[in-house]
């Protein structure tokens, strides 16, 4: 049957169910990696590794992620990808898996593209506790992805203009009064409030979706979300 999919799937279930073998599972995995490599790198650097070594460690941990049995291991680790990866890298740095992964990787294969500009920026970041560095970078990545989703959506609906208003409002300047904003955009205060509220509510949905992709149990989304807010507020 070629029926349209009616039942939703999270990326998590995609990765786990297909054990990384189907093209869509591989794509899902790549997307997860693109979120997680920079937190891993930040962690490794905070541990005092040199840039090349840190890159190597990231590739090694990502390579483990691509192995088929990864799903079972994350499952065993309470089904939270963030906690699993952080622990996984810590173990790796302790040398526990070094020989094993080197064999499996067959040398220094590139598993995930590391973005040079982002590496530079991370290198320039203030020195933090490794765990904090990881969490902070993770929170940034998740935020960025959710923002990108929001942007994509507004654009698809032909509403880039209204999103610009939202962006400007939360751009870190002192808040202009609603009345002023409404006058500038030739609309009403209620409409401005409604726009801001709805964009934020929508953003939170994207954020939840983004997190839901990385946990097995939907009930864990809330605690991950509070972690994220706490990390961002620190």
């Amino acid at each position: 049957m070629t029926g349209a999919r009616v039942f939703p799937t999270t990326r998590w279930s995609l990765v786990v169910s297909a054990r990384g073998d189907s093209p869509s599972a591989r794509r899902a995995l790549q997307e997860l990696l693109s979120t997680y490599w920079s937190p891993l790198y930040a962690f490794a650097r905070s541990k005092g590794l040199a840039r090349e070594d840190a890159e190597d460690a990231v590739q090694a941990v990502c390579a483990r992620l691509i192995q088929a049995e990864f799903a079972a291991r994350v499952e065993a680790d309470r089904g939270r990808l963030r906690a699993y990866l952080r622990a996984s890298l810590a173990n790796h740095l302790r040398g526990q898996h070094e020989r094993e992964t080197r064999q499996k990787r067959g040398g220094d294969a590139v598993v995930v593209e590391l973005d040079g500009a982002l590496l530079d920026r991370l290198d320039a970041a203030p020195h933090l506790d490794p765990g904090d560095a990881f969490d902070r970078q993770w929170a940034r990545q998740v935020m960025e992805r959710a923002l990108a989703r929001l942007e994509e959506e507004f654009e698809a609906e032909g509403r880039s203009g209204p999103l610009g208003v939202v962006r400007a409002y939360f751009s870190g300047q002192e808040l202009p009064p609603y009345g002023e904003l409404a006058a500038t955009h030739d609309t009403t205060v209620t409409r401005i409030k409604s726009l801001l509220h709805r964009a934020r509510a929508r953003f939170r949905v994207h954020l939840r979706d983004e997190i839901a992709d990385t946990v097995r149990d939907p009930a864990d989304v809330d605690s991950e979300l509070s972690t994220l807010i706490a990390v961002l507020s620190a």
Binding site: R140, E144, F170, H197, R200, A201, L232
Partner: peptide
């Protein structure tokens, strides 16, 4: 950094203000 809360900006948006200002706001 955000002029209001001091948190870092993510792509020009203060994540903390955007996120943690409690709903409802309408």
């Amino acid at each position: 950094e955000c002029a209001r809360c001091g948190a870092g900006l993510v792509q020009g948006v203060c994540a903390r203000c955007f996120l943690s200002e409690p709903l409802p706001s309408l």
